[in-house]
Design a protein around this nucleic acid. Structure first.
Lengths: 177, 177
DNA sequence: GTCTATACTGAGATAGAC
DNA sequence: GTCTATCTCAGTATAGAC
C-alpha cells in the first residue's frame, strides 16, 4: 500500500486503515501513530497537525487518481479499465478513496470533496472524449459512484465484485460503450 | 419534516439535521436535545438511549421507504418516479437516507446498513418486476446510489438536480426503460 | 535528520450525582 | 436541569537515542 517503505507512507496507510475500519471518530492522532508503530511525536514530526495528515491523504489520493486516469487513457477498452479499477476494493487507490469519502462528509471536508470532484471530472472527461458520448460517460461514472457508496458503507462483498463488474459492463455495452 | 408535531418526531428531525449538517461526531445526545428545544432528560424520556434514538431513525427510514415503494408500484412511469424521488434532496425520506448513510459507516452501523439494503432490494425488485429486466433495474438503482453518494458528501447542488434527473432519465430511456 | 518518551495545556465532551 | 469530576483529544514542548 505504501508507495515506498517510508514512515510517512506507513502513517498514511495507518490513517486510511483506521478511517475505513473504525471510522473518522477513531482516527485520532494517537491511534494513527500507534497503528503505524511510531510515537505521537513521531507522527507530528512528519505531519505538523491533524489537518496536515488529512492534506497528506488528499495528496496521495490525487497522485493515485492522476496515475489511474493516465492508465485509462492508454487502455484499449477504457470502460472496462475504468469499471475494473472501480471495483478493485483492495488497491491503494480504492482504499484512499473510501477513506476520503469519510472525510468528505465532515463539516471540514471541503478539501476532500474538492479533490474527489476533481478526479471524478477527470474520469468523466477522459471517458466522454474517448467514447464521444457525454451522457454515456456520465452514466458510467454515476454507476461507479454507486459502487463507492456501497464500499464506503462496508456493504461491498469482495467475493461478488467480479460478478458485479460483469453486470455493469453488460449494461455499459447495452448503452453502446 | 416531522410526520406529526410530536416531540418524538421533532427529536428525530433534530438528529437528522445534525447528522447531515455537522456529522455524526456532533450529533451527541445533548446537541440533539438542544436543537429540538428540549432538555437532555426530555430526550431520554422518549428515547432511552442513543442507540434507541438511532433505532427510531431507522424505523422512520423504513416507514418512508415502504411508502415510497408503494407509491412507485402505483406510478405509471416507475423509472421516472424512482429517479425523481432519488433526486428530491429536501424530502423527509431523502434527509433520513443521507443521515442513515452517515450512521451506516460507523463500526456500529450494522442495523443502518441492513435497513438500507432492505429498501434498496425492495426498489430493485419493484423496478425489475415492472420492467422485466433485472440488469436494467440494477443499473438504475446503482445510478441512484451514485446520486446519494454525492448527496451524502454535500456535493449535490439542488439547483442542478433537475438537469441531473433529465440526464439520467435519458440514459435509462436508452437502456429501454 | 528521524525519531522515542514523557509531560503538559486547553478545549470540549461525557457521565453521574444531586 | 444544574454541577462537578473525569476523560479524550490536539497540539506544544523538552530532552535525549540512533
Amino acid at each position: 500500500m505504501a508507495r515506498d517503505g517510508s514512515t510517512r507512507e506507513l502513517l498514511l496507510d495507518a490513517y486510511v486503515a483506521l478511517l475505513i475500519e473504525e471510522g473518522e471518530r477513531a482516527a485520532t492522532v494517537q491511534a494513527v501513530a500507534d497503528r503505524a508503530g511510531v510515537s505521537k511525536g513521531g507522527l507530528l514530526y512528519h505531519f505538523g497537525s491533524k489537518a496536515d495528515l488529512e492534506a497528506g491523504l488528499i495528496e496521495r489520493f490525487l497522485a493515485f487518481g492522476a496515475e489511474d486516469v493516465e492508465a485509462l487513457l492508454r487502455a484499449d477498452d477504457i470502460v472496462e479499465a475504468f469499471l475494473r479499477s472501480s471495483i478493485a476494493v483492495d488497491s491503494g487507490f480504492d482504499r484512499a478513496t473510501v477513506a476520503l469519502v469519510r472525510l468528505a462528509q465532515l463539516p471540514t471536508g471541503g478539501p476532500a470533496r474538492a479533490a474527489m470532484q476533481r478526479i471524478d471530472d477527470a474520469y468523466a472527461s477522459a471517458i466522454a472524449e474517448r467514447l464521444g458520448d457525454e451522457e454515456l460517460a456520465h452514466a458510467i461514472v454515476l454507476m461507479s459512484d454507486g459502487i463507492y457508496l456501497r464500499s464506503a458503507m462496508g456493504a461491498l462483498d469482495p467475493a461478488r465484485a467480479e460478478a458485479e463488474l460483469e453486470s455493469i459492463l453488460a449494461i455499459a455495452r447495452r448503452l453502446g460503450a
